[in-house]
Write a protein that binds this DNA or RNA. Structure first.
Ligand SMILES: [Zn+2]
Ligand SMILES: [Zn+2]
Length: 741
DNA sequence: CGGAGATTATGG
DNA sequence: CATAATCTCCGC
C-alpha cells in the first residue's frame, strides 16, 4: 500500500512551519486534518496538529518519522475551522500554533466527574424480596425495588432520597446483591441553560405573543429567504432603530435556515447575554439551543461543544468565542450588536469577529447577518458601497415612538449656579416620574472605574509596583492591580508621605448613588455595576427586582443599558455623556454615539419616554446625532473624520506595541524601527506615527511604546510587520505585538 | 521552544 | 587543558 503523509504543526514551539510525518496503518482511518496528534519532534514527544494529508512528499523519506498516536481528550478541529485558522494566521501575522489554538478553544474534556454508582447484580425475584422483608431488611428492599426499575442509581441519591446509608450499601455489596461502581456521570448539558432560566423544563417557558412580524420585519426576512433559496449566501447589515425588533427578524431567519436542515451561530456580546436574551432564544428554539458563556465550567463548556458537534443543537448562542463552535452544517451567522467593542479580541491574534465570521461564512457557504442600531462606520460603509446588503427597520415594533431626547450643557448649569450632578431639567423630570410611579434609569457613561485609595495629605493614589496604574480596592481590604494581578494588603499609612489619612474614593456609580439618595430621599435606589454584581447571578436578581418595580431609580454603567428592557422606564438620564469621547482612539466618537443611542433607547419601550443627555461638549457630532437619533447624520460626520485622519475603513491601521524591561533599549529600538520604516521605499506611502507613549507606559515591569502605521493596502501592513520582526531579532530584550484594524 | 554540538570565556 | 557559559543551528 502507498504511504500516506501528514503535514503537522508542532504545538508550543517557535518553529512556525509544517513538518511531514508518516501516518501509520492503524491510524489511517482515524486521522483527519485538524486532528491533534502526538509526534516525536527532535528528541521530544510533542503535540501537533495535522493541517494536511497527502500521498506525496518532497521530503526525503528516510528522514520521516511516524505519527505516534492521536492526542485523546482533545476535540479534533473540523476542516472549516482549520481553514479558518490558516486564514487567521496569514491575516493577523500569527504563528500556525497560535492560530490553531485560537479556533479550538475547548482544550480538553477535563477529568469526567466520577461518582459512585450502584448497580443491580442479579435478577432479584419477588421471592428474594419477600424473604428480605421477612428479615425486616426494609432498606434493602427499598433499594432493590428502585434498582429493578432503573438498573443503576447514583449513591448520593440512594443515601439522601432512599435513606439507605453507606454501611447498608456495603453489606449488600458484600452479599452480592449490588455492586458499587464508578460511573462516568454525564450531567445533562441542558442543565446550565435551564438553571439560568430558573425552569426545570423547556415547556415551562411561556411564549410571549410578539411572534408576528410587522411589514418592515417581514420584508427583511423575505429578502433573506429569497436570497437563501436562490443560493446567494450574502452578508447583510440589519440596521434598525432601538426597539425595532431586530431580534425577531433574525430569529425568523434562523428558523428558516433550520427548516433547511442547517444550523446557526448567534453572537451576542457577553454583557448582553442576559436572562432576557437567553430566555427569548430558548422560547423559540427550546432544547435545540446551545448556550456558551463565561459562567460555564470547563466541563459544561465541553458538553455544549459536544452537543454542537453531534448536531444536537440548531442554534448556538454565545459571545465572541462562540464563532469557533464546531458546527457541522452552518447556514447562518448572526452578529447582534455588531458595533460592540467586545467583538474585538484583545489578545493576539487581535481579530474582530466580524471579519472572522465573514471568512467562516465564506468557507462554509453560509450567510452572515450583522445587526445593530448603531453600526460601525466600517460596516455601514460596506452597505453604502453596496458590498453588503442593507436591511432597514425604521419603526419601533411596539407602536411606541422613539424617546424625546434633550441635551443639557452642564457648563450652563454651572453658570446658573447649579453645582449638583443633576441638571435642573433632569431633576424636575425625575421628580415627575417619581410622582407618577414610573421608573428612571441613570446611566453613568464610564467603564466601571473601581474604587482606588489615595492620600488626603499628599494626594498620591496608591500605584502598583509593577505597572503605571492605580490599584483598586477589593472588598477583602486588599489592593489589586488589574493589569498584573499584584495584590497587597491595604496599607495603614500613605506609602509616599507616611500620613495616616488615606481614604477610599468610591466609584463613579457609588458617588452617583449617594448623590441620588441625597437629592431624592424618598426614592428607592438600586445600583448595578461590577462591584455590586460580583456575586453569582445577582445581576439577574437585580434586574428582576427592578423589573418588578422594587426600585424607582436604577443606577449603573453599561451593564444596565445592554440586554434588558423595562416597560415602566420612561426616563433615562445620561450622566457625563462625554467621558467616552476623551479616550484617545479613533473609535471614541463611535463608542459615544453607540452608548448614548443605546441608553436613550431604553426609555419608553412600552410607553412614550424621554432621555436627558448631560454633557460638557454638547456641540460634538456624536452627541448631537445621538440626541437627534439620526444615524445618517452621525455616519456622514464620522466617515468624514475617518477620511481626514486616514482611519479605518478608509485606511487600514497597524498598531505596534513594542515592549521591554529596559527602558533605554526600548526607546532606542522603537526609534530605530520607525527610522528604518520611514527610510524604506516600499513603505514610504504609509503614514507612520510614533513612537509614542501608550496611556499606561509600564505594565508588569515592561515599558511600552506605540507605533501606528496606516496604509490603504492591508498587505503592505503585513510586510511591515515582517520587517519589524526582522529588525527585532537584533534586540534581545525587546518584543512587539501587532494589532491590525 | 529546547537539545546538541561548536565556540568562546575563564582560570590555573 | 578542563570546565562552564554562550552561541547557532535545526527538527520532518
Ligand atoms: Zn500591576
Ligand atoms: Zn501621602
Amino acid at each position: 500500500m502507498k504511504n500516506l503523509f501528514a503535514d503537522i504543526i508542532v504545538a508550543n514551539t517557535n518553529v512556525d512551519r509544517p513538518f511531514t510525518y508518516l501516518i501509520p496503518m492503524n491510524l489511517r482511518d482515524k486521522v483527519t486534518p485538524g486532528c491533534p496528534v502526538l509526534i516525536e519532534f527532535g528528541k521530544l514527544t510533542k503535540k501537533g496538529y495535522i493541517i494536511d494529508i497527502k500521498e506525496e512528499s518532497d521530503v526525503d523519506i528516510s528522514k520521516l518519522k511516524y505519527i505516534k498516536d492521536i492526542e485523546n481528550g482533545e476535540l479534533s478541529t473540523d476542516e472549516n475551522l482549520l481553514r479558518l485558522a490558516i486564514w487567521i494566521k496569514h491575516r493577523y501575522g500569527v504563528t500556525f500554533d497560535k492560530a490553531i489554538s485560537t479556533v479550538m478553544p475547548v482544550k480538553s474534556n477535563v477529568e469526567e466527574k466520577t461518582t459512585n454508582e450502584i448497580f443491580l447484580n442479579q435478577d432479584i425475584g419477588e421471592d428474594i424480596l419477600k424473604e428480605l422483608t421477612k428479615k425486616r431488611k426494609v432498606a434493602w428492599v427499598r433499594l432493590l425495588k428502585e434498582l429493578k426499575k432503573t438498573e443503576s442509581l447514583p449513591q448520593s441519591y440512594v443515601n439522601k432520597e432512599l435513606k439507605v446509608n453507606s454501611a447498608t450499601i456495603k453489606r449488600m455489596a458484600e452479599e452480592g446483591y449490588i455492586t458499587v461502581g464508578n460511573k462516568q456521570r454525564k450531567s445533562n448539558p441542558l442543565l446550565p441553560i435551564l438553571k439560568s432560566l430558573g425552569v426545570e423544563d423547556f415547556n415551562e417557558i411561556q411564549a410571549t405573543n410578539e411572534y408576528i412580524l410587522n411589514e418592515e420585519q417581514k420584508l427583511a426576512v423575505d429578502i433573506f429567504k429569497k436570497d437563501f433559496d436562490s443560493g446567494n449566501k450574502n452578508t447583510y447589515l440589519l440596521h434598525g432603530i432601538t426597539g425595532s425588533g431586530k431580534t425577531l427578524v433574525f430569529i425568523n431567519m434562523i428558523k428558516y435556515v433550520i427548516s433547511k436542515g442547517l444550523q446557526a451561530i448567534v453572537l451576542i456580546p457577553e454583557i448582553s447575554l442576559t436572562y432576557q436574551t437567553v430566555l427569548r432564544m430558548a422560547e423559540h428554539f427550546k432544547d435545540r439551543v446551545a448556550i456558551i458563556n463565561s459562567k460555564l465550567s470547563k466541563n459544561e463548556r465541553f458538553y455544549q461543544f459536544d452537543r454542537i458537534k453531534n448536531g444536537d443543537a440548531d442554534v448556538i448562542i454565545g459571545p465572541r468565542s462562540a464563532i469557533f463552535a464546531p458546527v457541522k452544517r452552518l447556514g447562518l451567522i448572526v452578529i447582534d450588536e455588531e458595533h460592540d467593542s467586545a467583538y474585538k479580541n484583545e489578545n493576539v491574534p487581535t481579530f474582530n469577529v466580524r471579519d472572522v465570521a465573514g471568512k467562516l461564512a465564506n468557507i462554509a457557504g453560509a450567510s452572515l447577518l450583522l445587526a445593530s442600531a448603531t453600526p460601525t462606520p466600517e460596516t455601514y460603509n460596506r452597505a453604502v458601497t453596496g458590498e453588503i446588503k442593507l436591511l432597514e427597520l425604521k419603526e419601533r415594533a411596539r407602536n411606541t415612538t422613539l424617546p424625546k431626547v434633550s441635551v443639557v450643557d452642564m457648563r450652563d448649569e454651572l453658570k446658573m449656579g447649579n453645582r449638583s450632578i443633576f441638571s435642573n431639567k433632569l431633576k424636575t423630570l425625575i421628580e415627575d416620574r417619581l410622582r407618577k410611579h414610573e421608573q428612571v434609569m441613570l446611566f453613568m457613561n464610564r467603564r466601571g472605574y473601581s474604587s482606588f485609595v489615595s492620600c488626603r495629605s499628599c494626594g498620591e493614589a496608591i500605584k502598583c509596583k509593577h505597572c503605571d496604574v492605580t490599584m483598586t480596592l477589593h472588598n477583602n481590604n486588599k489592593l489589586v492591580c488589574h493589569y498584573c494581578g499584584y495584590s497587597i494588603d491595604l496599607p495603614k499609612v500613605c506609602p509616599s508621605c507616611g500620613s495616616r489619612y488615606i481614604a477610599n474614593f468610591g466609584t463613579g456609580t457609588q458617588k452617583l448613588e449617594a448623590m441620588t439618595r441625597e437629592v431624592f430621599p424618598n426614592a428607592k435606589v438600586l445600583r448595578m455595576d461590577t462591584d455590586s454584581v460580583s456575586k453569582k447571578n445577582s445581576a439577574n436578581d437585580m434586574i428582576r427586582d427592578f423589573a418588578r418595580g422594587d426600585a424607582d431609580i436604577l443606577i449603573g454603567t453599561q451593564m444596565i443599558v445592554k440586554g434588558h428592557d423595562f416597560d415602566n422606564v420612561t426616563l433615562v438620564g445620561i450622566m457625563a455623556a462625554d467621558t467616552s469621547l476623551y479616550v484617545s482612539n479613533y473609535n471614541s466618537a463611535q463608542r459615544t454615539f453607540e452608548l448614548l443611542t443605546q441608553a436613550a433607547g431604553r426609555a419608553g419601550r412600552a410607553k412614550s419616554g424621554e432621555a436627558v443627555i448631560q454633557t460638557y461638549k454638547p456641540e460634538n457630532y456624536a452627541i448631537v446625532a445621538a440626541a437627534a437619533q439620526d444615524y445618517k447624520k452621525y455616519f456622514e460626520n464620522e466617515i468624514a473624520y475617518r477620511k481626514l485622519g486616514g482611519y479605518p475603513p478608509v485606511c487600514h491601521m497597524l498598531t505596534v506595541m513594542i515592549s521591554s524591561i529596559r527602558e533605554e533599549e526600548l526607546n532606542k529600538c522603537a526609534t530605530a524601527i520607525v527610522n528604518t520604516l520611514k527610510s524604506d521605499n516600499i513603505f514610504k506611502k504609509s503614514v507612520i506615527i510614533g513612537p509614542t507613549d501608550p496611556s499606561v507606559v509600564k505594565v508588569k515591569d515592561y515599558y511600552r511604546k506605540l507605533v501606528y502605521i496606516k496604509n490603504a493596502n492591508y498587505d503592505i501592513l503585513l510586510d511591515i510587520q515582517k520587517k519589524i520582526e526582522e529588525s527585532l531579532v537584533s534586540y534581545r530584550n525587546v518584543g512587539a505585538v501587532y494589532d491590525f484594524n
